[in-house]
Design a binder for these strands. Sequence first.
DNA 1: TAGATTGTTAATCGATTAACAATC
DNA 2: TAGATTGTTAATCGATTAACAATC
Lengths: 218, 218
Amino acid sequence: MPKRENISMSVIRRLPRYHRFLSHLREKGVTRISSTELSAKLGLTASQIRQDLNCFGGFGQQGYGYIVDQLCDEIGIILGLQNQYKAILIGAGNLGQAIASHMNFPEDGFRLVGIFDSSPFKIGNRLNGIEILDMERLEPFCEREKPAMAVLCVPREAVSELSDRLYALGVRSFWNFSHYDVAVKHTDVIVENVHLNDSLMTLCYQIHNASQQAEKES
Amino acid sequence: MPKRENISMSVIRRLPRYHRFLSHLREKGVTRISSTELSAKLGLTASQIRQDLNCFGGFGQQGYGYIVDQLCDEIGIILGLQNQYKAILIGAGNLGQAIASHMNFPEDGFRLVGIFDSSPFKIGNRLNGIEILDMERLEPFCEREKPAMAVLCVPREAVSELSDRLYALGVRSFWNFSHYDVAVKHTDVIVENVHLNDSLMTLCYQIHNASQQAEKES
DNA sequence: TAGATTGTTAATCGATTAACAATC
DNA sequence: TAGATTGTTAATCGATTAACAATC
């Protein structure tokens, strides 16, 4: 990979989408695609796609386009999907259970190695073949397994203390589903927030706004 | 509300976060806040916050700042949270169940009025007090209830046909959790995609990239 | 009145799009 | 060789930040 360095998040956030789309094309047996075709399907400009890809190197062939199979793999490598980083899940409530069983971690660069909860009703149960452990066993577990990432599916009130506790255990990245922004107190911490409530409110705004526009026009 | 019209999505996506933060401050009994204080807590610039708010009107007082209670309510109104739009959920699998029970729809501007699934093992069960109905009952239900929004928690393959079916029934907005982008074939459709896989891959990239940087420096 | 902080305009920065030469 | 499509530079557009006058 030739270039890299200082890639903007706007570009990064488009890569998984390219990857998903190209996997799909590959499955359908498509071998070749041009930036123009791809842009039409994704609702982007061809320019943007070429610009994005050229942050990482020239993957295409002039006059021909991109080889689907090859480009898909390259994007996978850029994203680091081959890594299988160890991940733990904290909080086996509704959402935690759904994440554990709905997500295909290996496909996305991770391996779920542990699940923790503090409820006696959940401890001992299995989720996707993994035993739910008592929160008290977090320390020895992390010292042994050294997970790189923690999925946080706990109530808002618990996050601040929990993230400190995990940081002390060497966890440096968080996939946060709680209704709370994980504070980035340390420069080496990576947080990806998924605020479902925010997403839903955004949708509400759009519906609300569209109906107001409609009113105004009538 | 004085101004409005043509507000960019960048601004809209920050509003729920402001709202969440201000609710929290209100709960803690804080009555007054300046854009500078707020910006420090949110990790933004004071300029941006003032700029954002002034898209909708002047909610502050010069020399004083903003009244937490009032600003919070105003943002709620801008987002349209008072609307309680009717929503239905399609797909009562792991993720669907989690969404139904984990989300507080009324707080976010919606009311969940129906849940649908095609599995005989799920039909008839209750989720959050709502009976899971057979997909075949979708038509009469929608004709009667006229839901504004559908939460899609179905497999990728099902989305294309399903969204057409819902569009025909008058549903114009979708909160899509499937591993697929809902095609916007019509200009009056609003889609909010939540691609958890994409989010996870983005996190993978960041970890991968951080460790590469660390290697380079050593 | 003096101090503080907003609302708003102007300057900067970054991201997207357009254009085209390079080349398969 | 002619046609197509990339990689890349330049132009445009939009979003963020800075500055400051208005005013509470």
